[in-house]
Amino acid sequence: MLKIDNLHVRVAGKEILKGLSLSVNAGEVHAIMGPNGAGKSTLANVLAGREGYEVDQGSVEYAGRNLLELEPEQRAAEGVFLAFQYPVEIPGVNNTYFLKAALNAQRKRRGEAELDSMQFLKRVREKLRVLHIPEDLMNRAVNAGFSGGEKKRNEIFQMALLEPKLAVLDETDSGLDIDALKMVADGVNAMRDPQRAFVVITHYQRLLDYIVPDFVHVMVDGRIVESGDKALARKLEEHGYAWIGERRVPQQSRVGAA
């Protein structure tokens, strides 16, 4: 589904990703861990198409297409979703209105029929119920005045509603208490599907107790330096990232290759 090969990315003139390679197949959950400044969020933003990220070298193939040449809204319609590390507050824009516009824009781009208000609300209620989110969230402005936990819940809710094929979660667990963390994990687990893949970026092993990944990658200095299964996450938790630094850094890592 996703094939990143030798990706080099520069932000404001500084090289952040230095030859990152990663393959993700449908149905898989990949966790990416790593210390601050390793380039985890850069990877997430490059995948979603944020401006200001210059790709110097390498390629990103998604569903057989060159992902990098698509606009952010095209990527979304193709099924790419980014749960933001810092969800943006948009005062004055109602959450319901925003999500209906987003979902219908995606459907239109895919050549599917747009949902009318009744169909849309039915789907919203369904997802709210599954995620145990209060309905009044929909009547508020997008993330405006939301607590940190509410913002992250809203991200997961958006993901549930938009039903992406590839969901990238950028430190969705940061700043969450244990209940909110479980809610996020439940949301992801409920959506695990043979047709859908997740890339879960996290600082801490804690989230991975609830979202059990198929693969764990360790990212250091713009590259994946170690890959393994969930046992790797526990090892990291025990020994810290310094332990990785002492090991030999391989040039490339291919786990779960197609």
Binding site: G49, P72, E73, A77, I90, L103, A105, Q106, Q158
Partner: peptide
């Protein structure tokens, strides 16, 4: 970018 990443032009 937030809005565009959700599919809005």
């Amino acid at each position: 970018f937030y809005l565009r990443s959700r599919g809005i032009s």
